[in-house]
Computed example of a mutant assay.
Amino acid sequence: MNNTYHTKNELLDYSQRIHFFARSDLSVSLERYIKRWGQCPVERCKVIVVLGGDGFMLMALNKYWELEKPFYGLKFGSVGNLMNFEADIERLEMSLQKSISFSYFPLFVKILGEKSPILSFFAFNDVCLYRRQYQALKIKISIDNVIVTSMVMGDGLLCSSVMGKSAYYASAGGISFDLPYTLGVCAINPFSLTRWKGRLLFPYQTVRAEILNSETRPFVFGWDGQDKVLEPQYKTIEVCTYEKKTITLLKTENLKYGILC
């Protein structure tokens, strides 16, 4: 995670160069901000201001991250580690100018199935596998094609970027980390006799999770607050940190959170 402070000589003129993106129930607030600051087309804006909570910020990242614009969140939800407290609407540009820039690396995900096309996409917070019914999952874990455990038995498996390390990953007992390239992997509620609980991976390493007996032990695949039941032939997930692109979040200096975690 790289932190960048704007100096006085580097202050950006955000006036009339803001694109606002809001949750559907925040139309009134969205109109207020657009009336004061205008609505710049997202392709030409200098910053994307997101109105909502952490979940909606993740939706915004999935939608716009490839435009390589910085994101500034205004907290309207119950959780807001990725957001900033809403200030006086007239002070928005000043808050943007005084913000700290945090750069993060996304996760690259591949889902493999027998005689089926490979599914691939990017995630930003976390990726997880969890059981659909009462039977625990049995998962074989490999790192760079080397088997590290032939079977982890429990509720599932969770992979987290540094952006998501203080959310579900932390509550699941994952090993804490701060380096931006690191990928945290942990078992979710593993069976008491399971020795392998998790591991930290470097950017050049890929974790591979293969679901065993998936016909009788079905699972759900989740990422960034979304989930999906995969077709039966898809049983293997690969995840690694993607170093070639970054996403940038802006945080205001005087927030009690200090940094994103």
Rank of each mutant, 00 (worst) to 15 (best):
A22L: 01
S24D: 13
D25F: 02
D25A: 00
L26C: 08
S27L: 11
L30F: 14
Y33A: 03
K35Q: 15
R36N: 05
R36D: 06
W37M: 03
G38F: 02
Q39M: 02
C45I: 01
C45P: 05
V49K: 11
L51A: 09
G53C: 07
G55W: 11
F56L: 05
M57W: 13
A60P: 08
A60C: 09
K63W: 03
W65M: 05
W65F: 15
E68S: 14
K69N: 04
P70S: 10
P70H: 11
F71Y: 12
Y72F: 15
V79L: 07
M83A: 04
E86N: 12
A87M: 11
A87Y: 14
D88W: 06
D88F: 08
D88L: 06
E90F: 10
R91N: 15
R91H: 15
L92W: 13
E93W: 02
E93D: 11
Q97N: 02
Q97G: 12
K98E: 13
I100R: 12
I100E: 11
S101G: 01
Y104R: 09
Y104L: 12
F105D: 01
P106V: 02
P106G: 05
P106H: 10
V109G: 03
V109Y: 07
K110S: 15
K110L: 08
I111R: 11
L112F: 00
L112A: 07
E114V: 12
E114W: 08
K115M: 07
S116A: 14
S116W: 04
L119V: 07
S120T: 13
A123S: 14
A123V: 03
F124G: 08
N125R: 07
D126G: 07
V127C: 10
V127I: 13
V127H: 05
L129M: 08
R131T: 12
R131H: 09
R132P: 04
Q133N: 15
